[in-house]
């Protein structure tokens, strides 16, 4: 097992003059899991995006370490998987094409060849793998997001509203993904659902800021 670590220091985010959250600090290692909860507008999705490295904080840092060595910002994308309502895949391409194209852009086509079929089967989209994503239901699109997030075997998996649009079978799939990630890496779940929050050992409750 590697010694992957996520370290957050003095994290603050403001939008215009409104403070979303202030001076958050925590660290997570392999086997850790963190639930981010709070009311609507408390900044759960914003914090998730900052932790995934796709949004800049107003102050503070998010750093990933592998065996004590800080991972450069450009390489962070290779270690994080992200499922979010704000993330969409290309509707004009099929599930297979989406995974292949995004693997090529990420420069890990080899992983695609090794894992794409297995993941598409795992998320239950194998019979519809060649259909354009534009004709998928919202639940099928959510399943495909899991295949995309897991394709490069990320050390950190961040799930924002993990079970939205999913049926019972889809929820079981998410529970299995969560179980595996807690064993092999770091899991972060941003949710309003108290049952989903219980998947995690640690918890942050964000308060809606009045300023």
């Amino acid at each position: 097992m590697n010694s992957f670590k996520l370290v957050v220091r003095d994290l603050t985010k403001d939008f215009n003059r409104r403070s979303i959250f202030r001076q958050l600090a925590f660290s997570l290692t392999v086997g850790d899991s963190l639930a981010i909860t709070g009311k609507n507008g408390s900044g759960k999705s914003t914090l998730s995006k900052i932790l995934a490295g796709v949004l800049s904080p107003s102050q503070g840092t998010v750093e990933y370490f592998l065996d004590g060595v800080r991972i450069q910002e450009e390489q962070m994308k290779d270690t994080v998987g992200f499922v979010s309502p704000y993330l969409n895949l290309y509707e004009e391409f099929s599930a297979v094409e989406n995974l292949k194209i995004l693997s090529q852009i990420r420069s890990n086509k080899k992983r695609f060849e090794e894992r794409a079929d297995e993941l598409i089967r795992m998320v239950g989209l194998w019979p519809r793998r060649d259909d354009p994503v534009g004709i998928y239901s919202s639940g099928m699109k959510q399943r495909l997001k899991y295949a995309f997030a897991l394709l490069h075997e990320p050390q950190i998996l961040i799930l924002d509203e993990p079970t939205s649009n999913l049926d019972e079978e889809g929820m079981e799939l998410v529970k299995e993904v969560v179980r595996r990630q807690k064993k092999n890496g770091i899991l972060i779940v941003a949710t309003n659902d108290s049952l989903e929050a219980k998947w995690c050992k640690k918890k942050i409750v964000l308060k809606v800021s009045s300023t």
Binding site: K49, A52, V54, K77, V80, F82, S84, Y86, L87, N88, L89, Y90, L102, I105, R106, F148
Partner: peptide
Amino acid sequence: GTTLTLQLV
């Protein structure tokens, strides 16, 4: 809504 997808890869 694919900007975030590109940012991740």
